[in-house]
Design a protein around this nucleic acid. Structure first.
Lengths: 195, 195, 195, 195
DNA sequence: AATGAATGAGCCTTCATTCAT
DNA sequence: AATGAATGAAGGCTCATTCAT
């Protein structure tokens, strides 16, 4: 009778692996590294995961999910659109400060090109975010704040892209200013370039 | 010390390797795959490349470079800013249709987190693009088209992010409409959300 | 130090392991398989057996012993020699129908090439059978039914070989007719080929 | 362009593996053992064999085939039946003296219970031997040397069993006298026990 | 007595790379 | 220059066994 659930244990052990993967990349990290870092034995790890790919998927999903959660929460806060856009980078930065989940997310994006399970989960999560964003744009159109000609679905994708771009640039350069990026995004979106 | 003809041959052989890497990922592609696909012998490949990592870097740089070139050319065409933003996705889509360079680029982004050479090259190229974009924004400010309060450097990053987001989303879903994304980006940028 | 009840338990649990071994072979059966099939925990199994090799030896000895018992009993029934030879296959077939001890025996034969304990036990049992057979031949010689020139010990070995051949062929093809084999053996032995 | 065929090389390398397997058994021999004994590197071995199971099958087939060849040749020599039966053990002994193919054969018999490829090959070879033996018995019946009531197919199986028994007993005890076994078999078959 | 999570040696295999030809 | 057989370190994983509970 296990006192702690397998899932809990798996969760407890994941951070060690995540740290390895964030540091060295999924494929330059050996199981030995993960195992040592976790302070476990090989056999113990394989009680909780079917194999390395399983661990990669679990960690990739965790990183992707964390990013998506942060974005979803920001959207749900229902602040005015420009403010939403302006604060997203800082929100992600806050999440990333503890672990290095943006590094993991960037790798996960590449992995999702090959791994079906990962891609499906990524897509599903993204669809959720896109739905929220689209609903938000549609709300703006109903309010008359956003012109009718604006395509809600495509605009949602663009806004998502804005966030993805920030994540990418932050992964390469952790010193990138979230505030500057956020402010510029906000300014852009409120019509700085108006023709 | 590779001669000119060597470089030429290397160029000729790269596409085969690139196809493998785009299809299966850098680390799930073995040298055997690359070698077979290129119709060469192991020894021949090692005349042109120091090793697998070298090939990965070469192909990653090629993919990143291609994207950056396309972006730079678009910028250099000096069309009005909204039009520039609106046409970038289609430009990238056109480039990607032949090979699958966006897939390679997304992987290269992850790889650049680990590989110093790759990261430096990526950064350098990105700095070039950012410079062009910033110059463009500064020009707009000088023209009075863009308000003084806009931060040219940060805005350049946001615009770059917009493009990166498109590349990412296209890599996952090649059916994504470049036209829709471009139009939405253009609309956004000309003040659709104006508070 | 196993008590009586332990031995009893061990006996009770063996059939489960034997079934695994007969099905998949000694070395393609993992302790996990045995343990699961027996409905026990690893710790419990190791209370009764020192390790996997112990179980293999126990099961191998059981299979070998069963065969030898059957043969010995047939011999002890003291029927005329040709009848003895003729009925041995059917006797073995009857024993094998329930479990698949001939499959286990065939594997045990191979194992006995390596395992000293197993080999010694096998040899001892075989010597018993050979002794009985030899005594039988000697009896026949005393009776005058068998010519003096016949070598009792070597003949015993040949008769044993006849049985071993049947076991082998039955293990590969459970549909092999014991009746046909037995009848042909009997016929052969009563001089069908007489020069 | 390989100067020597892969098959040849594979053959050259097999004896080393065969020696290991004969000594320690298929499953107590590690690839490391085989590789070291062959004086090769792991990679080299895997150029010629898909894996350990492939090697086991190859060696098992070789051992089984060698035994069957010897038996077939003896039969084909068309000596009188009793002489054939009498000389088979010595023929096998001669073959076995160099390598220890009877040890391998005994293990192969067990392996054939599980491995389909092996079992099929074994069966096919055995059918060939049985056919020859049956033809021989039928010839004897036509000659009038063998009574009509004798079942050729079943008798062939019994004669085969006689040989298998010898192989088994020799594998356990290499000092077993082939001459004694052969003579006893011959005597038995010419009607020593005639009721 | 029993459990089953944990251990860790060792397994089979791959694959980037080399080098004799 | 080119070949491809050979190398061997390292990889992911299994599984017989133990031991704290």
């Amino acid at each position: 009778m296990p006192r702690v659930s397998d899932a809990y244990l798996a969760q407890r052990r994941l951070p060690a692996a995540a740290a390895c993967f964030a540091r060295d990349g999924f494929h330059r990290t050996s199981m030995r590294n993960v195992i040592d870092e976790a302070g476990l034995s090989p056999g113990a790890v394989y009680r909780y995961f079917r194999g390395k790919d399983d661990i990669i998927v679990a960690i990739a999903l965790d990183a992707i999910g964390a990013v998506q959660d942060v974005v979803r929460e920001s959207i749900a806060r229902r602040r005015p659109f420009p403010e939403l856009v302006g604060e997203l980078p800082a929100t992600i930065e806050a999440m990333d400060r503890a672990d290095s989940r943006t590094r993991l997310a960037v790798q996960a994006w590449g992995e999702a090109l090959r791994d079906t399970a990962l891609r499906d989960a990524l897509s599903a999560g993204l669809d959720g975010v896109l739905d929220q964003l689209r609903a938000r744009v549609e709300l703006g159109r109903a309010d008359g704040q956003i012109p009718e000609r604006v395509d809600p679905a495509a605009t949602a994708r663009v806004l998502l892209g804005l966030v993805q771009g920030y994540i990418l640039q932050r992964a390469w350069d952790p010193d990138l200013s979230a505030a500057d990026y956020g402010r510029a995004a906000r300014d852009l979106v409120v019509g700085s370039l108006s023709a």
